[in-house]
């Protein structure tokens, strides 16, 4: 046997089980999305024989265009709000005294461990016309007393931010922890305002953390399905809801496949963009660490 190959045998033996598992149960099924979107549906809810472009063509309707635009809009808004909240939070936790830092971090992580459905349900109760949150807003005259919050887009956005925010704070904090805060003082000494120093020294300094935060919020957000399903109405349906409807209501798997293929492409584009930006950042600052 080739010597080089024998040297690498242990590596292959250890790597093969996990990598093989993910190749067969993750990569192959993802490829299958595209293959099945090109198959005709059979009348019994299965996948027919032969090939067709019908399901891809069926995506080009006004209805789907609205859904796709809304999916992008909700996801981008969620990402923006999460970043807006995660930057000061990550900054504050990173500058807190060491003892405090662990506690604050734990408080941010716990929601990640708590049941996803239960956190959505908690908001459904609060947003209900008789719920506490709705009544508090009406009491403060922030919304009219008969305003409908539940089953409308603002409710979906609120809950999306609620579920995504911990994922944005963690990478921002991880990068901020390694940031040299003396740079901020230097910027202030050189005449920068507080906000200016934050935006032009701190934010670029934790660039990789910010990019990771965008990646881990934006991409899962594009596939959101349960949140609009439980707290949204017909005016807040996203592409994930359409995929689920094609699978569970119409039982048209190839049509669902075409929608899923569209989402896959829509997810790969921002993912590739962030990875390219991160790689460029790495070349500039080779000591930077991964922020997840």
């Amino acid at each position: 046997m080739n010597n080089r190959l024998r040297d690498r045998l242990p590596e292959w033996l250890v790597t093969l089980p996990p990598m093989g598992w993910l190749a067969v149960l993750f990569l192959l099924p993802t490829a299958l999305i595209f293959a099945i979107s090109l198959r005709p549906a059979d009348p019994f809810g299965g996948i027919g024989a032969g090939w067709t472009l019908d399901h891809i063509r069926a995506l080009a309707t006004h209805h789907y265009a609205v859904i796709a635009a809304r999916t992008v809009l909700f996801s981008v808004l969620t990402t923006a709000v999460c970043l807006f909240l995660a930057l000061p939070t990550g900054y504050y936790i990173a500058r807190a005294p060491r003892r405090w830092r662990q506690t604050l971090l734990l408080l941010v992580v716990v929601p990640f461990w708590t049941s996803f459905l239960i956190r959505i349900f908690a908001w459904k109760v609060l947003l209900h016309p008789d719920g506490l949150f709705k009544q508090a807003l009406a009491f403060l005259r922030l919304v009219p007393a008969d305003a409908a919050l539940l089953y409308h887009p603002p409710a979906v956005l609120l809950v999306m931010v609620y579920t995504c925010l911990p994922f944005a704070i963690l990478p921002v904090y991880a990068a901020a922890e390694k940031f040299d805060f003396q740079l901020l003082e230097a910027a202030r000494d050189l005449g920068a305002g507080r906000f200016q120093a934050f935006m032009r020294v701190f934010v670029p300094g934790i660039r990789r953390g910010v990019l990771t935060a965008v990646l881990v919020v934006l991409i899962p957000a594009l596939g959101t399905y349960v949140i609009p399903d439980l707290v949204g109405g017909p005016t807040s349906e996203m592409i994930g809801n359409k995929i689920a409807q094609r699978v569970f209501v119409d039982r048209n798997l190839p049509h669902a496949g075409a929608l899923a293929a569209l989402l896959t492409v829509g997810v790969l584009l921002p993912m590739a963009a962030v990875l390219v930006l991160q790689a460029r950042g790495r070349r500039r600052a080779p000591t930077d660490e991964e922020g997840l």
């Binding site: 149960l25 993750f26 596939g223 994930g240 995929i243 689920a244 496949g257």
Partner: peptide
């Protein structure tokens, strides 16, 4: 390549993993 394959499922929307596995088991 191994790291990319480990890292990607963490980011991919759950619904895509769900439907792709449904297709896989159906196939």
């Amino acid at each position: 390549a191994h790291f990319t394959l480990i890292y990607t499922p963490l980011v991919v929307p759950e619904i895509l993993m769900g439907i792709s596995l449904l297709f896989f088991f159906a196939a």
